[in-house]
Amino acid sequence: MGFTGLFLISFLVVHCYVNALIFFNDGGVKFTEAAHFMGTNPVVRILEIGLTVGIFAHIIQGLLLTFENRAKRPIGYAKTPGNKSSKWYSRSMGLLGTLILLFFVLHWYHFWIPNRASQFMGNGEIDAYAKMKLVFSKPWVVIVYILGCISLSFHLMHGFWSAFQTVGLSTKKYKKIINGMGMAFAVIVPLIFILMPLSFYMGWLA
């Protein structure tokens, strides 16, 4: 979980950077340029295969882990400690991951699948900026995206540090720094993502 998690975190950085280019408010010129690079560069295309494998490995491993671990306590406690000894989001990674996956299905349906399908059919890339404008005009879509990003935020609050711990890097000296970075990452990145559908819906972007 740790290795795939770290890989997916690195992807989030790139995804967030490229999409944040819309905030130049230049009608999507800079963003389209970067999206074109990401959509056509052969190295990025090969990395995308790695990303697809990584994300499914993370999902399958996560689901197996959740169900296997649940079976290790056939009779539960009548009284549980609640949040006394651990954070609720640390204990709910399976649930948060499932919510993120449900959001991803909608997200892929909106952007990734139409784009690749169009390229495959020989029609080139779609105009992602125009597509964003269209998709984010519906209030329910914007709400689902915001909820998806909040789930991602809590998932990262535990996942960022946890990944470093699993691969053995969260040493005594660096634990606080890694945890702090993780918390900042978990708040800032999803917040930037939330601003995207929100900005289109509120008409803040041309």
């Binding site: 000894s85 640390s90 535990h158 946890s162």
Partner: peptide, 11 residues
Amino acid sequence: GSCTNTQACEA
């Protein structure tokens, strides 16, 4: 089971 780093053990 396996460790998912909730840290309840340490607490």
